[in-house]
């Protein structure tokens, strides 16, 4: 029986947190948000230098032999920092290619694992993170299977004004582009890859929700009104307690969904749907509560809470709304 983080897992999170602390602070986030780019090469290279692209790959494939759980822990820290880049797409694409039998597709693996080839998710929507930079798009093959589409000819990209400023989307249209097959319709890997993406989105939401809670608590301890730190007032104290009550128990739900994926539990698909739905609800509630807890400063652009709020809007809509996943979960339970 082991259902809490090991010292190694805590160390992985600390390493990612330390790296992002050096290359991705509020100043960089502000500059990036107001810039034109949809990708930040410096932070991407720093993260990839930690081996994140290959984290969940088997050792035989040059990976670290860890699981989706460890990848989720990394995505949690990325969510905390509102890190840029299609990290979730990269990890999921690596998992997919490593399980694929096609030789030409498999040849892409070293580039994806090292992070030199940037991969992003283009499933269920034509709004795609970091599309102007990505070289590979994880997409539906048009028949219910999965494939990777190469950037370039046959891929049209239209700039849009993106809500999430940390991982800006563009509108992508696929024509007759170069395609690498992954899994055909009916292959259980199609669902598994989708499940992995849902779990990682839930993990990103967890990190963001925790960060917003931490910021709010810190603010309530230092901000004074009526001669008191505002965190002493029960009205606010109770709101902050409810943020913790929402976020901290949900952490174990992310762990379970990731563990279920790694262990191939029979309820893994349902656990991924439940985690995506629940954590995106938590993220929405928590970012709203955080801005309310801060008052006017939270409503400014400069303070930066809006970046996490925007990220929560993106995560909630990405790969299906909470209500859609709850409907799937109801179906999967045989209700």
């Amino acid at each position: 029986m082991h259902f809490h983080l090991t010292a190694e897992q805590v160390a992985i999170q600390d390493a990612v947190r330390g790296t992002l602390g050096e290359c991705w602070g509020m100043e960089r986030l502000h500059a990036f948000a107001d810039g034109e780019a949809d990708f930040d090469a410096e932070s991407w290279q720093a993260l990839m230098a930690l081996g994140i692209g290959a984290l969940a790959l088997p050792e035989a494939e040059g990976g670290a032999g860890l699981g989706l759980l460890d990848a989720a822990l990394v995505c949690e820290v990325a969510g905390e920092a509102a890190a840029p880049g299609p990290l979730i797409g990269q990890i999921v694409a690596a998992l997919a290619v490593a399980q694929c039998q096609d030789a030409a597709t498999r040849a892409l693996l070293p580039g994806i694992a090292s992070g030199e080839t940037v991969a992003t998710i283009a499933l269920d929507s034509n709004l795609v993170q970091c599309a102007r930079t990505a070289q590979l798009f994880l997409a539906d093959d048009g028949a219910g299977g999965l494939c990777l589409i190469a950037a370039g000819e046959g891929v049209e990209i239209e700039a849009v004004s993106a809500t999430d400023r940390s991982r800006p989307v563009s509108r992508v249209t696929f024509g007759s582009a170069k395609t690498y097959p992954l899994f055909v319709a009916g292959d259980p890997m199609v669902q598994r890859i989708r499940d992995a993406a849902l779990v990682l989105i839930a993990a990103d939401a967890l990190g963001g929700a925790q960060h917003c809670t931490d910021l709010s608590v810190e603010y309530a301890k230092t901000r004074e009104q009526f001669g008191q730190p505002i965190g002493r007032f029960q009205g606010l104290k109770h709101q902050l307690a409810h943020m913790m009550l929402d976020v901290e128990p949900a952490r174990a739900q992310v762990w379970y969904a990731a563990y279920g994926w790694d262990a191939g539990l029979p309820d893994a698909t349902r656990a991924a749907a439940m985690a995506k739905a629940h954590l995106c609800e938590v993220y929405t509630r928590t970012t709203r509560a955080a801005i309310a807890a801060h008052g006017g400063i939270g409503y400014t652009w400069e303070y930066g809470l809006n970046y996490w709020f925007r990220r929560s809007v993106h995560n909630r809509a990405w790969l299906g709304s909470p209500a859609q996943h709850r409907a799937r979960a109801a179906q999967l339970a045989g209700w």
């Binding site: 259902f3 128990p249 174990a252 739900q253 439940m274 739905a277 629940h278 909470p322 979960a329």
Partner: peptide, 13 residues
């Protein structure tokens, strides 16, 4: 399903 989200959070915690 929304309630179950909380039930599962409690369970896994």
């Amino acid at each position: 399903a929304e309630i179950e989200g909380r039930v599962l959070s409690h369970r896994y915690t």
